[in-house]
């Protein structure tokens, strides 16, 4: 049995993402990578919390001056919804419905771009309205590094999912690419996990003071 063989609905296994040994390895290895990413983001959160509101002089903007509820709320909703749409995509993957999977992945990607757009607007806003830049203070460096690392992860995730969608558009699902889709969706959920802490710790706690 070859992983790249054409499959029918009857042959499609219950857990296509863990059917072959390669798939099992990929699955486990990616989870471990996420374990490492947890510590990576923890490092950034720790740095941010240590340097929050640490500015060279009192005329610099602080967290409570910068953040506004509506935009952050919008971004949170977009990203949470994109997490659900990628769950839908995996649901259809398990039911061997390639078209619907692609559709929901497409929605996920669109939501991801919308999120990125908001983030770019937000950063631009801080730079021009408040003079809060990467180099203006330790607070600025820590803020843009933490949120920017997350944004870079979103960007990479978008490129990844798009590459998978385009590459497999013609050939449909098989046991070779099912684990790839699954792992990419895990990555997307992890991005959302990080965002949950970013909006709680950076934005909401920033507004509380």
């Amino acid at each position: 049995m070859q992983a790249e063989e054409k499959m029918t609905l009857e042959q499609w296994p219950a857990a296509p993402e863990r059917q072959t040994l390669e798939a099992k390895n990929k699955f486990l290895g990616f989870w471990f990578f996420l374990g490492g990413e947890t510590v990576l983001f923890a490092s950034l959160f720790a740095t941010y919390l240590a340097l929050k509101d640490k500015v060279p002089s009192p005329d610099h903007a602080l967290a409570k001056d910068l953040f506004e509820i509506p935009l952050v709320f919008l971004m949170t909703m977009i990203l949470l919804t994109s997490s659900l749409t990628s769950v839908y995509a995996m649901y259809h993957m398990k039911n061997f419905d390639f078209k619907k999977m692609q559709l929901w992945l497409g929605v996920t990607v669109l939501l991801g771009f919308a999120f990125l757009g908001c983030e770019i607007y937000e950063f631009n806003h801080y730079v021009h309205e408040y003079g809060h830049t990467f180099t203006s203070s330790a607070f600025g460096s820590a803020f843009y590094t933490l949120v920017g690392f997350h944004g870079a992860h979103v960007t990479f995730g978008l490129g990844w999912i798009l590459a998978l969608m385009i590459r497999n558009a013609k050939r449909g699902l098989d046991l070779y690419n099912a684990p790839k889709f699954y792992v990419a969706s895990l990555y997307w959920h992890f991005i959302d996990v990080v965002w949950v802490f970013i909006f709680s710790v950076v934005y909401l706690m920033g507004m509380v003071g």
Partner: peptide, 13 residues
């Protein structure tokens, strides 16, 4: 491994 990661994350923070 996720929980170990979370544990180290908490210690670090």
């Amino acid at each position: 491994f996720m929980f170990s990661g979370v544990f180290f994350a908490i210690v670090m923070i």
